[in-house]
Design a protein around this nucleic acid. Sequence first.
DNA 1: TCGCAATATGAATTATAATTCAAATATTAT
DNA 2: ATAATATTTGAATTATAATTCATATTGCGA
Lengths: 210, 210
Amino acid sequence: METKTLGRKEREYLRHRREIMDAALVLFSSNGYHNVTMNQIAARAEFAVGTLYKFFTNKESLYNALITEKLSEYLQEWESVVDWAADEISIIRASVKAHIRIFNRNLDYVRLYLSETKGSSFSLRAGLEKEMKTKIRSMMEKVARVCEAGMEKGLFRRMNPLHMVLALDGIIDSFLMEGLENPEAMPFEADQILDLFFNGVLVPDGGRNG
Amino acid sequence: METKTLGRKEREYLRHRREIMDAALVLFSSNGYHNVTMNQIAARAEFAVGTLYKFFTNKESLYNALITEKLSEYLQEWESVVDWAADEISIIRASVKAHIRIFNRNLDYVRLYLSETKGSSFSLRAGLEKEMKTKIRSMMEKVARVCEAGMEKGLFRRMNPLHMVLALDGIIDSFLMEGLENPEAMPFEADQILDLFFNGVLVPDGGRNG
DNA sequence: TCGCAATATGAATTATAATTCAAATATTAT
DNA sequence: ATAATATTTGAATTATAATTCATATTGCGA
């Protein structure tokens, strides 16, 4: 770990940086990226506006820092959970549960992520998206490999593993979004997602040929 | 039909309105909502900026007009297709196929919509207005009733119909988004979505109890 | 042809908020 | 203590683009 070698100065720098990010997160996630000014962030973080620019080159890079940091945490936690499980079905099960849990623990960030982004610098955002997409893609590939292993073992039906991953992610996202919008009217369990994903909706052999 | 009773004036008004909307769509969908100015739209539509404000109270309402118009068309076409089908499985099948077809025919609008919501592939319906959400909700309820009917008939397993709809929509959105981002690397058929939704991924009775 | 109403024009206004930077303050080294 | 260095400050600057409105143009009936 490098952590120990950080001097007081560095730690102070990082603490200030964190204070700014925390202030920005609260404001962004409740008001939306654009309805928050740098002055407001500065006020909440108890710094002057100018100081923010010593830590982040501009407003968008502050936003990017928040998003990328949390996404990395998210993926890291997800990986640690998933690596722990044994057979393919348990891995999928653990993955879905982890998704739901981490999602619910980070609703502020989800709202921040979904909040409208209206920056003008196209390229910076494109860079962010690319980095994020790469990370998400590597997570999907990991799941795809699990799916393939499951197929080899005869647990899962033979199909394009990417399709399997897309289906699973789609169902999860759909449930999570619905739960975000209607928290009370939409209670659900990981098991319900898993049941749908594993077994589909048809009654087994419901009057058709076996 | 009211259409015939429209005088020349009204038709001209509507034509001008349409010209403005067409210009806006082209610019928005290729540059993104925030990177297009009212002056640019005016130039392309061959009107003066001020004129745009005779047709739309502001930039956002022009954007909303584009989105709501297209979404209504989308839903109307979807309904006409779905009403045509017979049994519940055929209805679901027709619904998925219609979704894919209409989506592919309106990629410009999809990009326009995504440009406003900053390109998150999270959920297609994350950033819509209340009115639009109501419409989509009523579509979902329609599908939910089909699902319930299917359960009554013993075609589908008993479950919360909303869950069934969410799962189906989630899978569709997930496939469509992937196809939008990797058009060449991600060919898929409606049947693959339907197979996943209907049958799930597990091998039927794959070594477990029947 | 004249005048009234409707419509279109686009330079000027307005609003907003991101960003800068010269000055102030704090910290550290000698 | 003093100077050198680093950090913070926030009023002023800058940039942008949405929106307005006094004026010009057009359409149309008498």
